[in-house]
Design a protein around this nucleic acid. Structure first.
Lengths: 197, 197
DNA sequence: ATTATTACTGAATGATGATTCAATAATTGT
DNA sequence: ACAATTATTGAATCATCATTCAGTAATAAT
C-alpha cells in the first residue's frame, strides 16, 4: 500500500557500475551517478543508502557477471587447454580489445582502495580467491587429462596463472598490441600445458 | 636580491611523493600535503604551480630513485641469474615486505589515471618502457653467458618478465605470504634461465 | 473518496576541495 | 639605511562534494 519504485534496481546498478568502473570510486561524483542512472540524489540514497553502498553493490554485480563467464569457460566440455584459453579470453582479452575501458573493475578497485577501505579490500580479495579456486579446479582436471606440464602442483600453478593474468591486465595498459598479447598468452599456455602453440 | 627559499625542493618532493604514493592522486588533498611537507598552500603553489604539477614532480622523483636501483641491479658484476633476481627484489619483494605500502607508485598511478589524464598516463608508460629496456639488456647479456633458456627472443622474454613483475606486484595485494612469493619468483626464474632453484 | 504509506524531486545544507591574494618577512644591491 | 625583489603566511574565495529533507506524487487498503 504505497507508491512503487519506478526503476529496476539491477538496471540502475548496471549503469552505476559502469561509471565506477570507468572513473574509480573516489572520482565518480554523485552528480555523475545521477546523470548516468537518471535517478535523483534522493532516489539513489533511498534505494542504496549512500555512495559507498552503491559502489559495493556495483562491485558485487560486476563480480557476479564476471564469475558467470569464468564458470562457463571453466565448466565447458572442451579439453583443458581450450578451457584455459577461454579463461584468458574472459579475464584478459576482453578487457584489452572488447571494451572501451582497459582494466578489470576488480583490479582497479583493489589498487584504489588498498589500506584505505579495508572492508572493500577484503571483498575484492575474496572474489579473487573464488576465481583462483576455479582455476585450481581446471588445473586438477587438466592434470587428469594429461595436458598439464608435470612439475609444480596445481595449487602453485593456479597462483602463477593468477599472477600472469594480473600481469597481462596491467601490461595491456602500457602496450596494447593485439598480436603481442596473443603471443604472450601462447607462451604462457606453453609453460603450463603439454601442447604446442 | 630577494628572500631565499627556506626549504629544499627535493626534500619537500620526497614528502609529497610519499603522500601521493600512499593515497593516490585524487584522494590526497592539499591539506594533507600541507601537513606532510610543512609548507603552507601559498608556498606549495609558489614552488610547484599546482597540485597536478606537484604530483608529476613527485612521480618523476620516484622514478629516478627506482630506476637508479634497477640500474644498480642490472649493471652489477654478478652473473645474469643473480642480476635478474636482484631486479625482482627491487621491483617486487621491496614493495611487499620492506615498505608499509603495497604497490609501486607507478603501478598505482597507471591504474588510477588511465584515460583520465592522458599526459600522466603517457609519462608512466614511458617510464615502464625504460625499465623494460633495462630488462631487455640484461637478457641479451644472459643469452651471451648461456644462462638464458633457448626459445623465445630476449624481446619477447623481456615483455613476459615485465608482465610477471606486474603480476607479482598485484598478487602480493591479495596474498602476501612471503614464502609463496619466493616460491613463485623461483618458478619464474626457472622458466627463464637455465639454472635450477 | 479518503487515508496511510512509500517513492520521487531537486533545492538546501554543510563539509571539504583547490587555488588565490593581501599582508608581512627576509633577503641583496645600492 | 633604503629600495627592490622575492618568499611566506594563512585566511578568503569559490567550486564542488556527499548527503538530507520538505514538498509533492503515486500507489494500496479501507
Amino acid at each position: 500500500m504505497a507508491r512503487p519504485q519506478t526503476f529496476i534496481e539491477e538496471e540502475v546498478l548496471e549503469k552505476a557500475m559502469h561509471e565506477f568502473w570507468r572513473s574509480g570510486y573516489a572520482t565518480t561524483s554523485i552528480k555523475e551517478l545521477v546523470e548516468a542512472t537518471r535517478l535523483q540524489p534522493g532516489s539513489l540514497y533511498g534505494a542504496f543508502k549512500n555512495k559507498r553502498q552503491l559502489f559495493i553493490r556495483s562491485l558485487e554485480l560486476y563480480f557476479e557477471q564476471l564469475f558467470e563467464d569464468i564458470k562457463q569457460a571453466v565448466d565447458s566440455e572442451d579439453k583443458a587447454e581450450k578451457r584455459l584459453r577461454k579463461l584468458f579470453d574472459c579475464l584478459v582479452v576482453n578487457f584489452s580489445f572488447r571494451s572501451e575501458q582497459k582494466s578489470c573493475f576488480l583490479l582497479r578497485t583493489l589498487l584504489e582502495v588498498q589500506q584505505n577501505d579495508n572492508e572493500i579490500s577484503v571483498m575484492v580479495r575474496r572474489m579473487y580467491a573464488q576465481i583462483e579456486a576455479e582455476i585450481y579446479g581446471l588445473l586438477v582436471d587438466a592434470r587428469l587429462q594429461g595436458s598439464l606440464k608435470p612439475g609444480a602442483s596445481p595449487e602453485i600453478m593456479a597462483r602463477m596463472l593468477m599472477s600472469n593474468i594480473f600481469g597481462l591486465q596491467v601490461y595491456s595498459h602500457i602496450s596494447s598490441e593485439e598480436y603481442e598479447l596473443e603471443q604472450t598468452i601462447n607462451n604462457i599456455m606453453c609453460i603450463f600445458t603439454t601442447n604446442r602453440y
